[in-house]
């Protein structure tokens, strides 16, 4: 086989796998959004843009969109700030550093359901360790999943707890690629530690920061399992974002066309955000 044929055969295989696993489901989901369907077995009825107008005219859609942004921004900001902070600490030399580095990734290795259940036990109203500690300190009892604000805080907290280790590890790896001579040159140039962070560390982390924020944004915007396991979008939709809404619409209310329309809009919003993001922060600058 000539080398050209080899290249094309690999290319074709790659394209075929992509088409089968990504393009086809997306096309199928998008096409579903133009039909009225109450099950996957019945005959679909062409509905045009009805599903879209119907979903867009409902308050629950806009609430889910806003919730999605609050959840994404909240989790990303805390993950990135804490991730950089922990990475800076773990990058220092101290006894037992390797053990602490190893432990720090642990939450990321646990299955989501384990993390969620652990958190639920911690905040349990009668036996929860957090509840007990807070009442011992004389702090008021928090209704973690009952009040809208606390529920959103809970899903953000658990998500941050679970995925900050990923961000920490990535930043830690990036920090180790910064040549120590840059810090030394900056020391000779008269900088203090804070100035070194803003003039050396942060600019050197910028490429990885750009990617991390984008990846986390996409993942968090679509994140389903944590919220579903913690609150199922409640109370009264306070933690319901587009992914939850889409699922509830399709599999709860058997409005498959409506659910597909929500998923398609979510996909379009994310694509737009990614597009704008890359225009604002092109990857090839440094």
């Amino acid at each position: 086989m000539s080398s050209k044929a080899t290249i094309y055969s690999f290319l074709f295989l790659g394209l075929a796998v992509t088409a089968l696993l990504i393009v086809a489901p997306v096309v199928y989901a998008v096409s579903l959004s133009f039909y009225q369907m109450d099950s996957f077995v019945g005959a679909p009825k062409w509905a045009g843009l009805d599903n879209y107008t119907r979903m867009l005219s409902q308050w629950v859609f806009w609430r889910a969109l806003i919730n999605g942004f609050i959840y994404s921004f909240g989790t990303i900001i805390f993950q990135v700030v804490l991730g950089i902070g922990f990475a800076l600490v773990l990058n220092q030399v101290f006894p037992g550093r390797n053990i602490v580095r190893g432990l720090s990734i642990l939450p990321y290795l646990l299955p989501t359901v384990v993390v969620v259940l652990t958190f639920k036990w911690m905040v349990d109203g009668s036996i929860g360790v957090l509840t007990t500690m807070m009442s011992a300190l004389g702090l008021p009892q928090v209704q973690w999943f009952e009040s809208p604000g606390a529920a959103m805080a809970s899903v953000i907290l658990v998500s941050v707890w679970m995925w900050t280790p990923f961000v920490t590890t990535t930043f830690l790896a990036a920090l180790q690629t910064v040549p120590s001579s840059l810090y030394e040159a900056a020391k000779v140039d008269g900088t203090n530690a804070v100035q070194r962070f803003f003039h050396i560390t942060l600019p050197m982390l910028k490429p990885i920061l750009t990617v991390i924020v984008l990846l986390r944004a996409v993942w968090m915007f679509n994140k389903f399992d944590v919220i579903w396991l913690l609150t199922q979008g409640g109370p009264v939709g306070a933690t319901e974002h587009l992914a939850i809404l889409s699922y509830k619409q399709a599999f709860g209310q058997f409005d498959i066309g409506g659910g597909a329309a929500v998923a398609t809009i979510s996909f379009a919003i994310l694509s737009l955000v990614v597009f704008i993001y890359f225009r604002l922060f092109p990857l090839d600058t440094e």
């Binding site: 040549p179 001579s181 840059l182 040159a185 050396i200 440094e286």
Partner: peptide, 8 residues
């Protein structure tokens, strides 16, 4: 030795 110029 490696110049240590600020790349950004």
């Amino acid at each position: 030795q490696n110049y240590a110029l600020y790349p950004h």
